[in-house]
Simulated scan of single mutants.
Amino acid sequence: MDSMVRAGDQQVGSLVLMSDYLAPTPLWVGVGACLGHGYLERLGLPEPLAQQLLAWQELFDAHYRQEGGWDSPDAATIYEQDGHQLQAALQEALPDSVVQLDLWPITGQAPSV
């Protein structure tokens, strides 16, 4: 079985679902390689899933501060729950890829990418 998903001219075998400050999307390949908006379509993601990914990133941008973390426990809880749901949806949409979830804003550990 081919473990790669094509994204334009690139093959993507492993994706990391992770928010970061002002990232265009919460999808990453490799260290420091955040996928832009166009890659969501190139990956063949359904439009509702692409919009949910962007909304998850917006939730992070609106409610997480570099100094002090989450502005409310509710925002952190929603972010974590949505992250798990998005990981499952991405894995279903991209069965030939491995989708890892990095919840560093919840765990306090350093980001994986």
Rank of each mutant, 00 (worst) to 15 (best):
P73Q: 11
V99C: 00
A93D: 14
Q91A: 07
L43W: 02
Q66W: 10
L86C: 04
C34I: 10
M4K: 12
S3H: 08
V98T: 15
G83H: 05
E67T: 01
G38A: 05
G38N: 09
D96S: 10
Y21D: 13
S97N: 04
T25C: 10
T107K: 05
E80R: 07
Y64D: 07
A88F: 08
I106D: 10
G8E: 05
G44N: 02
S97P: 07
L17F: 10
V98D: 14
L43N: 09
V113I: 12
V29T: 11
E92R: 08
A7Y: 00
Q81N: 07
L101A: 03
G68D: 05
I78D: 15
A33Y: 13
V12E: 10
P46I: 01
A89M: 06
S112M: 12
D20E: 15
V113T: 13
G30P: 08
L90D: 01
Q52S: 09
S14K: 15
P46H: 09
L35I: 04
G108A: 06
R6K: 11
T107A: 10
G8H: 04
Q109E: 13
E67A: 06
Q11D: 15
L40K: 05
E47R: 06
A75I: 01
L35K: 02
A89W: 03
P95K: 02
Q85M: 02
P105Q: 03
G108R: 03
